[in-house]
Computed example of a mutant assay.
Amino acid sequence: MITGEWLNPPAAVVRDGSALLVTAAKGSDFWRTTSYGYDRDGGHALLSPFGPEAALEVSFVADYDRQFDQAGLLVRLNEEIWIKAGVEYCDGALQLGAVVTNDVSDWSSAPVPWEGREVTIRASRSGDAVTIRARAGSGPWRMIRLAPFPPGVEAAAGPYCCAPEREGLTVRFTGAAPGPPDDVLHA
């Protein structure tokens, strides 16, 4: 079952068995400064404690098709230090990517043919880093990002979604599972 405390409660939340249907408010987003010139900290995230040596997997259905619709996993220390990773619809295609923020945001992405599929994002935190991996269905894990993150401090993590450009985005989150961090960076 998916649990936690809401950072910026969404427009609606409905439990459907073990799934959670989350409807994002128009204008919701996480971003800091870079290129766009604004700071946004109004995305919806269901956060739980995320310790220094831990991992979390968040699963959801990538079934959206409007500019900047997005869902995935957020790792957050505060409004200036966080990582969001997931699938975002951008420029006519679903993009698998990550935004790493330490005062300012950066963004990396690449198109994926995952329309309508269940996607799982995994954040593994160990030492001074968070390793982000993703997969569609039961496919192989793909490493998305190895990002710096302050060591030894309590953070929070959980599923997130945003709809910067429109009303009516509803994301089906199908699971969230904590666990130990990855044993190795490369298989």
Rank of each mutant, 00 (worst) to 15 (best):
E57I: 12
F50E: 07
Q95I: 15
V184T: 11
G37V: 10
L56E: 09
G139N: 15
P164Q: 00
G72I: 06
F50D: 06
A134S: 15
P164K: 00
S59A: 14
V130Q: 04
L77M: 12
S48F: 06
S105T: 02
A71M: 09
S138A: 14
R32E: 05
W141T: 13
G92A: 14
C162H: 01
R145G: 08
A129R: 15
V100S: 12
V99S: 14
A25C: 10
A156W: 08
G86N: 05
A93P: 10
F30V: 02
V171A: 03
P178S: 05
V104K: 13
S59F: 12
G158A: 07
W31P: 02
D16K: 06
H186G: 05
G152Q: 03
V13W: 00
G116C: 10
C161R: 03
S124P: 08
A129E: 14
A12Y: 01
V87S: 03
W6M: 06
G127H: 05
H186T: 10
L46W: 05
R40V: 06
Q70D: 04
M1Q: 15
D106R: 13
Y36A: 02
L94W: 09
V153G: 04
V100R: 12
E53Q: 12
D91A: 15
L20G: 02
V22Y: 04
D182R: 13
D91L: 15
S48K: 05
A136G: 15
P52T: 07
V58F: 11
P148K: 15
E154G: 00
K84Q: 11
G72A: 11
V75D: 02
W6Q: 02
I2H: 07
V13N: 00
G27H: 00
L185S: 14
T170F: 04
S48G: 09
E79W: 05
W6L: 05
Y160F: 10
V22C: 06
S108K: 13
D29L: 02
G37P: 12
V119I: 15
W82M: 09
L73P: 03
F60H: 04
G179I: 11
F30I: 03
G42L: 10
E57Q: 15
T33G: 07
G42I: 11
A93I: 13
L47A: 06
D183G: 07
D128M: 05
E167L: 00
P49L: 04
T174S: 09
R66F: 03
H186W: 12
V119K: 05
S126K: 09
D41R: 13
F60W: 09
P178W: 02
L7E: 06
V14L: 08
A11W: 00
P49G: 04
G152Y: 00
A45H: 05
G86V: 07
K26P: 02
C161L: 03
L146P: 07
T101P: 07
V119T: 09
